[in-house]
Design a binder for these strands. Sequence first.
DNA 1: ATTTGTTCTTGTCGG
DNA 2: AAGAACAAAT
Length: 735
Amino acid sequence: MDFLAGLNDRQREAVLHTEGPLLIMAGAGSGKTRVVTHKIAYLIEEKNVYPGNILAITFTNKAANEMKTRVADLLNTEVDHMWMGTFHSICVRILRRNIDKLGYEKSFTIYDRDDQKTVIKECIKEVNVDKDMYKESYLISRISSLKDEQMDPDEFINMNYNDFRERNIGEIYGLYQKKLKAYNALDFDDLLIRAVELLEEDSDLLDYYQKKFQYIFVDEYQDTNKIQYKLVRLLSAWHKNICVVGDSDQSIYSWRGADITNILNFEKDFPGAKVILLEQNYRSTQSILNVANSVIKNNDSRKDKKLWTDNKEGDQVIYEQCEYSDEEAFFVAKRIHEFLYKGYKPSDVAILYRTNVQSRIFEEIFMTEELPYKIVGGLKFYDRKEVKDLIAYLNFIENPNDNVSLKRIINTPKRGIGNATIEKIEKYAAETADSMYGVILSIEDVPGLNTRAINSIKPFVELMNRFMAMKEIMGIKDFIEAVIEHSGYIEELERENTIESKTRIDNIKDFLSVALNFEQKNEDANMDDFLASISLLSDVDKTVDTDNMITMMTVHSAKGLEFPIVFLVGMEDGLFPISRAFENDDDLEEERRLCYVAVTRAEQQLIITNAKKRTIYGNTSFTISSRFLDEMGDTIVRNEKKIVKLKKHDDTGLKERLLDVFDYDESRFIAPKAKVKNNSNMDIEVGTKVKHKKWGIGTIVMIKARDDGDKELTIAFDNEGLKKLLQSIAPIQIV
DNA sequence: ATTTGTTCTTGTCGG
DNA sequence: AAGAACAAAT
């Protein structure tokens, strides 16, 4: 197979340049994924490189999977041995094998933000500082950036010895790390740091990985931080075949430590590096690129370059200023109806905003407008209480030192173990330098506990011990099922018997199918791998992309994605660019790059909106148009079309306001008529009661999205039991 | 110990 | 405006 076919000269050059450091400066939509996949395929096929000697680091797991599939498609060979994943997942993989050399157990737990918060709270209590003076979120971010700089707590305390406040932060930082170690847990930063530490300390191991990874690829290199840079340097030092891909104009993560100098200094850091520029854009129309170019050129600290395209001019980029923020959402909904009528699919459309709070109003309007949508980073399945509880069970059973998880589950479901009891256990554990689990194993030794407390603890300990034994002989899914059942978790929910508890049960069942799915895909994986895989999912990874829906997400989440139609909403000063960026030129330039990223997501049509008055966080205020709109100048045109549909039932007063804003033009309105014929837009959810002409009344107990956009409904009929139906064709009505 | 009611806080972006 | 943290009542 010819891996060079269909590539332009620059892209071809990038594929063929296999030896030595290579920086591919790839503008938005310039086909970098194509280059990388073809290059990997070329290496395997033409240069006979064994896939296991290739390491590719991507920004999300989804991107990694896509890349893997694309390479596999090009080759028709097995590429499973290729290492592909995010920095974090690669590091976990390294750590799972050898972290014992750093004094951790291999079954370590990965702590998410909530877990971090729990630990920080413990620290604040123990360091005995005024808890109002140190906010948890602030401490977490401070600690995170200290870690990124590889500053250890003692060093930090020494440096700031005369600053009371900083010194305390250092103390908390130190205690936090000590606790994580004791709990055998790592937070996201630790995953990277410990991996680097491990490689630095164990020269045999470093040697092994350096020799193993003959070819290394790093995507989105402009958003790597110091530790990640260090890791890349370490791993590539032997073969020196390091290929990084990035675009300094798309660097948007400086606030979490991304260091733009990594990409700017690549040639200096990796001697003999070759640089290839990809400036031809294959994604967007000329109109859209004009907007992108005219914004980004206002950044002072950038190498001048210009994206160009052979694509046609395309439709003009439209800008609409609405009166109110809810009208903005309404306007977008109208335009989407129009696009759908023209034959676009809902999945062709994306709505991009600067902050997550903006999604709410779109959600409301889209529900009444019967538009199918999904929110990336919004509906957080893995953040649901029941899912987190379950994960905490698994974490604890896997790693009994994990006090954070233990505290979460010890009285969930209710076992009569109250706060007072838990605190006594915690205190005793701290005094005896034991884990809480160690303490409750011999609960009689704990001072100050009454018999009632002791009698509630004992069955819990027995239960956990039983789980720990069961885990050894059971498969992942079966084991989770056992935990759900024997822990009494599902019983408690069933007893509750409310709509809410039913959804929770459904979520638990969904979690089971996630586990089953994982088990089938990764035959020799264990519980550790499963837990790690779910804790490392990004927001993008978490949203199913199979169903045919409009996507709503932040601009940050949209990085690397593309859509035929993009709505960029909320273009107001203070919102985008965000007000905190006003004071600082660097921050403002990052906002501008973010805007550049947003604009370049669009393939065919870009529509930009804002509102004169916006209700946010409960109060309404006047807004100022975004300065970026000024910079766009005449590359955007004011919207001329005024289309609006009168809502059938409108008691919000929105209709009257809309009549002021839009000229009502019924003839141009296109209603979503399709739904009359099938049920695709039917407003259903778990718990909805429906009537079937043969089976009578039933309740929807499960909704499963299918690849073709349809939904598979499991309905419990009163007399017929469970039935599975396709939403589009099922003869059902909402009762 | 648990439920219920009340006040307080928070409010960019994320693996 | 909404969720978390806290206080009070059962």
